[in-house]
Protein backbone atom coordinates (compact mmCIF):
# COMPACT_ATOMS: atom_id res chain seq x y z
CA UNK A 1 0.00 0.00 0.00
CA UNK A 2 2.68 2.40 1.01
CA UNK A 3 4.45 1.86 -2.28
CA UNK A 4 1.39 2.64 -4.36
CA UNK A 5 0.55 5.89 -2.53
CA UNK A 6 4.12 7.01 -3.00
CA UNK A 7 3.80 6.31 -6.69
CA UNK A 8 0.57 8.27 -7.00
CA UNK A 9 2.04 11.40 -5.37
CA UNK A 10 3.51 13.81 -7.94
CA UNK A 11 7.25 14.36 -7.76
CA UNK A 12 7.86 17.73 -6.06
CA UNK A 13 9.48 20.21 -8.41
CA UNK A 14 13.09 21.25 -7.85
CA UNK A 15 12.15 24.73 -6.60
CA UNK A 16 9.60 23.54 -4.08
CA UNK A 17 12.07 20.97 -2.78
CA UNK A 18 14.58 23.80 -2.24
CA UNK A 19 11.91 25.81 -0.45
CA UNK A 20 11.03 22.85 1.80
CA UNK A 21 14.56 21.99 2.75
CA UNK A 22 15.78 24.22 5.53
CA UNK A 23 19.42 23.56 4.71
CA UNK A 24 19.20 24.45 1.03
CA UNK A 25 17.02 27.50 1.70
CA UNK A 26 19.43 28.77 4.35
CA UNK A 27 22.28 28.23 1.94
CA UNK A 28 20.50 30.29 -0.71
CA UNK A 29 19.69 33.06 1.74
CA UNK A 30 23.23 33.22 3.08
CA UNK A 31 24.81 33.12 -0.38
CA UNK A 32 24.93 36.88 -1.21
CA UNK A 33 26.39 37.81 2.18
CA UNK A 34 28.87 34.95 2.26
CA UNK A 35 30.09 35.61 -1.30
CA UNK A 36 30.44 39.35 -0.68
CA UNK A 37 32.31 38.90 2.58
CA UNK A 38 34.53 36.10 1.31
CA UNK A 39 35.52 37.96 -1.86
CA UNK A 40 35.87 41.49 -0.50
CA UNK A 41 36.78 40.86 3.14
CA UNK A 42 38.30 37.48 3.88
CA UNK A 43 40.31 37.21 0.67
CA UNK A 44 41.79 40.75 0.94
CA UNK A 45 42.65 40.04 4.56
CA UNK A 46 44.68 37.02 3.44
CA UNK A 47 46.06 38.93 0.46
CA UNK A 48 47.19 41.69 2.83
CA UNK A 49 49.12 39.22 4.98
CA UNK A 50 50.69 37.77 1.83
CA UNK A 51 51.59 41.22 0.45
CA UNK A 52 53.37 41.92 3.72
CA UNK A 53 55.81 39.14 2.81
CA UNK A 54 56.47 40.45 -0.71
CA UNK A 55 58.16 43.48 -2.25
CA UNK A 56 55.11 44.40 -4.35
CA UNK A 57 54.94 47.92 -5.67
CA UNK A 58 52.15 49.70 -7.50
CA UNK A 59 52.08 48.26 -11.01
CA UNK A 60 54.43 45.38 -10.20
CA UNK A 61 53.41 42.13 -8.52
CA UNK A 62 56.11 41.39 -5.96
CA UNK A 63 58.01 38.26 -5.13
CA UNK A 64 58.18 36.54 -1.76
CA UNK A 65 60.92 38.10 0.37
CA UNK A 66 60.13 36.52 3.72
CA UNK A 67 60.31 38.77 6.75
CA UNK A 68 62.37 41.48 5.04
CA UNK A 69 59.61 44.12 5.32
CA UNK A 70 59.21 43.40 9.01
CA UNK A 71 62.98 43.42 9.59
CA UNK A 72 63.15 46.78 7.86
CA UNK A 73 60.29 48.16 9.95
CA UNK A 74 61.87 46.79 13.13
CA UNK A 75 64.85 49.12 12.57
CA UNK A 76 62.71 52.01 11.31
CA UNK A 77 62.38 54.72 13.97
CA UNK A 78 59.44 56.34 12.12
CA UNK A 79 57.49 53.07 12.36
CA UNK A 80 58.10 52.83 16.11
CA UNK A 81 57.16 56.49 16.47
CA UNK A 82 53.88 55.75 14.69
CA UNK A 83 53.24 52.80 17.05
CA UNK A 84 53.87 55.06 20.02
CA UNK A 85 51.65 57.79 18.53
CA UNK A 86 48.86 55.32 17.84
CA UNK A 87 48.94 53.98 21.40
CA UNK A 88 49.10 57.48 22.87
CA UNK A 89 46.27 58.66 20.61
CA UNK A 90 44.09 55.62 21.36
CA UNK A 91 44.64 55.55 25.11
CA UNK A 92 44.25 59.27 25.80
CA UNK A 93 41.35 59.79 23.37
CA UNK A 94 39.52 56.71 24.68
CA UNK A 95 39.90 57.71 28.33
CA UNK A 96 38.65 61.23 27.58
CA UNK A 97 35.79 59.94 25.43
CA UNK A 98 34.76 57.51 28.13
CA UNK A 99 34.89 60.04 30.99
CA UNK A 100 33.19 62.87 29.10
CA UNK A 101 30.75 60.54 27.34
CA UNK A 102 29.68 58.94 30.61
CA UNK A 103 29.26 62.37 32.16
CA UNK A 104 27.14 63.55 29.22
CA UNK A 105 25.07 60.36 29.37
CA UNK A 106 24.39 60.94 33.09
CA UNK A 107 23.39 64.54 32.34
CA UNK A 108 21.05 63.49 29.52
CA UNK A 109 19.54 60.84 31.77
CA UNK A 110 18.33 63.56 34.15
CA UNK A 111 14.75 64.70 33.89
CA UNK A 112 15.23 67.56 31.41
CA UNK A 113 12.99 69.80 29.36
CA UNK A 114 13.50 69.32 25.57
CA UNK A 115 15.04 65.91 26.23
CA UNK A 116 14.71 64.60 22.67
CA UNK A 117 16.04 67.88 21.25
CA UNK A 118 19.21 67.58 23.33
CA UNK A 119 19.71 63.98 22.31
CA UNK A 120 19.34 64.82 18.62
CA UNK A 121 21.69 67.79 18.82
CA UNK A 122 24.33 65.90 20.76
CA UNK A 123 24.53 63.20 18.09
CA UNK A 124 25.35 65.67 15.30
CA UNK A 125 29.18 65.44 15.45
CA UNK A 126 28.87 61.69 15.03
CA UNK A 127 26.53 61.90 12.03
CA UNK A 128 28.34 64.33 9.74
CA UNK A 129 31.22 63.03 7.61
CA UNK A 130 34.43 62.99 9.66
CA UNK A 131 36.44 64.49 6.84
CA UNK A 132 34.11 67.46 6.56
CA UNK A 133 34.05 68.21 10.29
CA UNK A 134 37.82 67.72 10.31
CA UNK A 135 38.07 70.45 7.68
CA UNK A 136 36.17 72.74 10.05
CA UNK A 137 38.70 71.86 12.76
CA UNK A 138 41.49 72.59 10.33
CA UNK A 139 40.16 76.12 10.00
CA UNK A 140 39.63 76.42 13.76
CA UNK A 141 43.27 75.34 14.25
CA UNK A 142 44.63 77.71 11.58
CA UNK A 143 48.00 79.12 12.58
CA UNK A 144 47.14 82.76 11.83
CA UNK A 145 43.38 83.11 11.95
CA UNK A 146 42.44 80.54 14.58
CA UNK A 147 39.28 81.61 16.35
CA UNK A 148 40.53 79.86 19.49
CA UNK A 149 43.74 81.89 19.55
CA UNK A 150 41.77 85.06 18.92
CA UNK A 151 39.26 84.36 21.68
CA UNK A 152 42.00 83.48 24.18
CA UNK A 153 43.91 86.65 23.24
CA UNK A 154 40.80 88.75 23.71
CA UNK A 155 40.42 87.26 27.17
CA UNK A 156 44.05 88.12 27.82
CA UNK A 157 45.08 84.54 28.54
CA UNK A 158 47.76 84.34 25.83
CA UNK A 159 49.75 87.03 24.00
CA UNK A 160 50.49 85.35 20.67
CA UNK A 161 48.77 82.89 18.33
CA UNK A 162 48.96 79.24 19.33
CA UNK A 163 50.66 77.13 16.67
CA UNK A 164 48.11 74.33 16.94
CA UNK A 165 49.25 72.02 14.16
CA UNK A 166 52.84 73.15 13.63
CA UNK A 167 54.31 72.15 16.99
CA UNK A 168 54.62 68.40 17.73
CA UNK A 169 53.07 68.46 21.22
CA UNK A 170 50.33 70.92 20.23
CA UNK A 171 49.53 68.92 17.12
CA UNK A 172 49.12 65.73 19.17
CA UNK A 173 46.82 67.48 21.63
CA UNK A 174 44.84 69.08 18.79
CA UNK A 175 44.14 65.86 16.89
CA UNK A 176 43.21 64.10 20.13
CA UNK A 177 40.80 66.93 20.97
CA UNK A 178 39.17 66.71 17.54
CA UNK A 179 38.85 62.93 17.87
CA UNK A 180 37.30 63.25 21.33
CA UNK A 181 34.86 65.84 20.01
CA UNK A 182 33.72 63.42 17.35
CA UNK A 183 33.61 60.35 19.62
CA UNK A 184 31.74 61.71 22.66
CA UNK A 185 28.23 61.46 21.11
CA UNK A 186 28.54 57.75 20.28
CA UNK A 187 29.73 56.88 23.79
CA UNK A 188 27.15 59.15 25.43
CA UNK A 189 24.13 57.88 23.49
CA UNK A 190 24.97 54.18 23.88
CA UNK A 191 25.67 54.58 27.60
CA UNK A 192 22.43 56.57 27.91
CA UNK A 193 20.58 53.57 26.49
CA UNK A 194 22.27 51.43 29.11
CA UNK A 195 21.35 53.88 31.88
CA UNK A 196 17.69 53.73 30.89
CA UNK A 197 17.55 49.99 31.42
CA UNK A 198 18.49 50.40 35.10
CA UNK A 199 15.27 50.18 37.15
CA UNK A 200 14.45 53.34 39.10
CA UNK A 201 13.43 51.22 42.08
CA UNK A 202 17.07 50.25 42.70
CA UNK A 203 17.97 53.91 43.19
CA UNK A 204 15.00 54.41 45.47
CA UNK A 205 15.92 51.37 47.54
CA UNK A 206 19.53 52.52 47.82
CA UNK A 207 18.45 56.03 48.80
CA UNK A 208 16.21 54.64 51.54
CA UNK A 209 19.22 52.70 52.77
CA UNK A 210 21.04 56.02 53.06
CA UNK A 211 23.24 56.03 49.95
CA UNK A 212 24.57 59.38 48.78
CA UNK A 213 24.91 60.52 45.18
CA UNK A 214 28.41 59.10 44.79
CA UNK A 215 27.41 55.81 46.38
CA UNK A 216 24.39 55.56 44.07
CA UNK A 217 26.71 55.97 41.12
CA UNK A 218 29.44 53.68 42.43
CA UNK A 219 27.31 50.80 43.73
CA UNK A 220 24.20 50.91 41.52
CA UNK A 221 24.90 52.65 38.20
CA UNK A 222 28.43 51.51 37.50
CA UNK A 223 28.05 47.75 38.14
CA UNK A 224 24.85 47.56 36.06
CA UNK A 225 26.42 49.58 33.27
CA UNK A 226 29.64 47.56 33.01
CA UNK A 227 28.56 45.19 30.18
CA UNK A 228 27.49 48.03 27.89
CA UNK A 229 30.57 50.05 28.82
CA UNK A 230 32.72 47.09 27.74
CA UNK A 231 31.03 46.84 24.32
CA UNK A 232 30.96 50.59 23.70
CA UNK A 233 34.59 51.05 24.62
CA UNK A 234 35.70 48.07 22.52
CA UNK A 235 34.15 49.72 19.49
CA UNK A 236 35.51 53.10 20.46
CA UNK A 237 39.05 51.76 20.96
CA UNK A 238 38.93 49.83 17.67
CA UNK A 239 37.82 52.84 15.66
CA UNK A 240 40.27 55.18 17.36
CA UNK A 241 43.16 52.78 16.89
CA UNK A 242 42.50 52.43 13.16
CA UNK A 243 41.70 56.12 12.64
CA UNK A 244 42.90 57.60 9.39
CA UNK A 245 40.64 60.41 8.18
CA UNK A 246 41.19 62.94 10.94
CA UNK A 247 44.98 62.76 10.79
CA UNK A 248 45.00 62.75 7.01
CA UNK A 249 43.00 65.98 6.93
CA UNK A 250 44.60 67.84 9.82
CA UNK A 251 48.32 67.02 9.69
CA UNK A 252 49.08 64.20 7.19
CA UNK A 253 51.27 62.79 9.97
CA UNK A 254 53.33 65.91 10.48
CA UNK A 255 55.01 67.90 11.96
CA UNK A 256 58.12 65.67 11.74
CA UNK A 257 55.91 62.53 11.96
CA UNK A 258 54.71 63.52 15.43
CA UNK A 259 51.10 62.62 14.63
CA UNK A 260 51.65 59.72 12.21
CA UNK A 261 49.39 56.83 13.14
CA UNK A 262 49.98 53.30 11.85
CA UNK A 263 47.09 53.70 9.40
CA UNK A 264 48.38 56.98 7.96
CA UNK A 265 51.93 55.64 7.75
CA UNK A 266 50.62 52.56 5.98
CA UNK A 267 48.81 54.79 3.46
CA UNK A 268 51.83 57.04 2.98
CA UNK A 269 54.24 54.15 2.36
CA UNK A 270 51.81 51.85 0.54
CA UNK A 271 49.76 54.13 -1.70
CA UNK A 272 51.50 57.52 -1.91
CA UNK A 273 54.98 55.95 -1.89
CA UNK A 274 53.91 52.96 -3.98
CA UNK A 275 55.56 50.38 -1.65
CA UNK A 276 52.51 48.11 -1.36
CA UNK A 277 54.43 45.38 0.47
CA UNK A 278 55.73 47.66 3.17
CA UNK A 279 52.36 49.39 3.59
CA UNK A 280 50.65 46.01 3.94
CA UNK A 281 53.23 44.95 6.54
CA UNK A 282 52.41 48.04 8.63
CA UNK A 283 48.68 47.27 8.35
CA UNK A 284 49.31 43.64 9.39
CA UNK A 285 51.26 44.91 12.39
CA UNK A 286 48.03 46.53 13.62
CA UNK A 287 46.20 43.19 13.81
CA UNK A 288 47.77 41.92 17.09
CA UNK A 289 46.75 45.14 18.85
CA UNK A 290 43.19 44.84 17.52
CA UNK A 291 42.94 41.19 18.58
CA UNK A 292 44.24 42.16 21.99
CA UNK A 293 41.55 44.83 22.38
CA UNK A 294 38.79 42.44 21.28
CA UNK A 295 39.95 39.61 23.56
CA UNK A 296 40.34 41.99 26.49
CA UNK A 297 36.75 43.18 26.24
CA UNK A 298 35.46 39.68 25.44
CA UNK A 299 36.95 38.23 28.60
CA UNK A 300 35.84 41.31 30.48
CA UNK A 301 32.29 40.44 29.47
CA UNK A 302 32.74 36.78 30.36
CA UNK A 303 33.77 37.72 33.86
CA UNK A 304 30.68 39.88 34.27
CA UNK A 305 28.46 37.02 33.16
CA UNK A 306 30.12 34.66 35.57
CA UNK A 307 29.74 37.13 38.41
CA UNK A 308 26.05 37.52 37.72
CA UNK A 309 25.74 33.73 37.78
CA UNK A 310 24.15 33.64 34.34
CA UNK A 311 24.76 30.95 31.77
CA UNK A 312 24.68 31.92 28.13
Amino acid sequence: MAVTTADVQPRPSFLSRVAESRGLLSFGFMLPTVVLLLVFLTYPLGLGVWLGFTDARIGRPGVFIGLENYEYLWDDSVFWLSVFNTLLYTVSASILKFALGLWLALLLNENLPFKSFFRAVVLLPWVVPTVLSAIAFWWIYDSQFSILSWALMQMGLIDHNINFLGDPQNARASVIAANVWRGIPFVAITLLAGLQTIPQSLYEAATLDGAGRWQLFRYVTLPLLTPIIAITMTFSVLFTFTDFQLIYVLTRGGPVNATHLMATLSFQRGISGGQLGEGAAIAVAMIPFLLGAILFSYFGLQRRRWQQGGGD
Partner: peptide, 17 residues
Protein backbone atom coordinates in the same frame (compact mmCIF):
# COMPACT_ATOMS: atom_id res chain seq x y z
CA UNK B 1 33.51 39.72 13.74
CA UNK B 2 33.54 40.83 10.09
CA UNK B 3 32.27 44.21 11.30
CA UNK B 4 35.33 44.54 13.53
CA UNK B 5 37.75 44.29 10.58
CA UNK B 6 38.65 47.93 9.94
CA UNK B 7 39.01 49.43 6.44
CA UNK B 8 42.45 50.73 7.47
CA UNK B 9 43.96 47.25 7.18
CA UNK B 10 42.01 46.27 4.05
CA UNK B 11 42.56 49.19 1.72
CA UNK B 12 45.98 48.11 0.38
CA UNK B 13 45.02 44.54 -0.66
CA UNK B 14 41.63 45.81 -1.84
CA UNK B 15 43.32 48.40 -4.04
CA UNK B 16 45.36 45.61 -5.64
CA UNK B 17 42.15 43.60 -6.21
Amino acid sequence: LAYLVPPSILFIPLSVM
